[in-house]
Design a binder for these strands. Structure first.
Lengths: 185, 185
DNA sequence: GTAAAATAAGGACAAATGTCCTCTTTTGTG
DNA sequence: CACAAAAGAGGACATTTGTCCTTATTTTAC
């Protein structure tokens, strides 16, 4: 599964597998709490995760949805071994492959292909993040929603609408209004 | 100047300097146009740059202000040698140190300290970008403005207010209203 | 299987925000 | 120095968006 995206030798795969931690989590289970240090890199074998943050009033703001067959972690906490500002939890029952920072760093040193793959991921992340920021500051709620539907059609059916609203930074009300307006057409 | 932030030997510095391109640009001069490939990594010796993008209606949206003694480039275009979606121009007369991707990649291969410094920059960028996204989707215009003032007090005096508005993703009108309201206090 | 919780639509209203305009001041240019 | 351009404040108004409700439906949990 991971192999699909990286060109790795059998030997490399064995190495990587030798330090993996397989974890099954239930829907709603928390993987990371704000204040804790994020100790793992996570690959989602199947299932669905989300990264969110609480503001001063206790409102959730979703930064990221993480599909199966993708990677996630709270990078700032993970890299600097600092308390995380974000939560990560499961939106569906999930099966995860996890590596501690220590073992993953060692893998990076041993397997050049993994390192360059990993760097590529960082870049993709950075560019996606910048693009999303652009949309956040330049688009109307309607454009944001349409863009979301276009980009993540699959997710729309998997999560409650209020989470889409949270992800887009608009109220549930505006989102239902937009959807109603689009039904009229 | 660059040296200050990286532990480099004299030899390394010579290497890095040997392939640098020093460029002086005037206020308003464009360094990168949308559609062009961003061919350089840029270190701003002194001066002030900005990265922005035009939407379909021709409105500017500022993604980044770049201070003196900091780095900038349009990463997505630079890394993948693709047409940029963004513009970069000078908000003040500036002196820039620039490296082509070819020569910079070579430096990265030769100087491990530069590579790790460079990776650190990427991470900082990623985390800053994510943080800004969080504020973009979670804060009111007033909170955004206050946060901006707190974080970039210096910039406030250097750029027109409408650019701050553009950076924050709000209209100039809301920004002047917020500022008026704060004067009342 | 049933009660409780979550979801989301919709109404009513208030508040926030944007657009368009004018006017004054400041800045930049020749 | 003089003229043009840019900046930004402010008014008037319309639109958008949010908050607080209620209600119907679906999902979850015991």
């Amino acid at each position: 599964m991971i192999e699909r995206s990286i060109p790795l030798s059998d030997e490399d795969i064995n190495l990587i597998s030798s330090v993996v931690i397989v974890k099954r989590v239930q829907k709603k289970e928390l993987l990371l709490r704000a204040g804790e240090v994020c100790r793992f890199k996570i690959f989602i074998n199947h299932g669905f995760l989300r990264t969110y943050r609480l503001d001063d009033d206790g409102n959730e703001h979703i930064l990221q949805f993480s599909n199966e067959q993708s990677w996630t972690t709270e990078g700032e906490s993970y890299a600097n071994i600092l308390p995380s500002a974000y939560y990560i939890d499961a939106l569906e029952d999930s099966e995860l492959l996890m590596w501690t920072k220590d073992s993953f760093d060692q893998l990076l040193d041993t397997i050049p292909a993994l390192r360059s793959f990993s760097e590529q991921l960082i870049f993709n992340n950075l560019h996606a993040s910048r693009n999303r920021l652009y949309k956040a500051i330049s688009s109307s709620p309607e454009e944001k929603y349409e863009d979301f539907v276009k980009t993540y059609r699959g997710i729309l059916q998997r999560v409650p609408l209020r989470m889409i609203a949270s992800y887009l930074g608009v109220s549930l009300k505006t989102l239902t209004r937009i959807r109603q307006a689009q039904l009229q057409k």
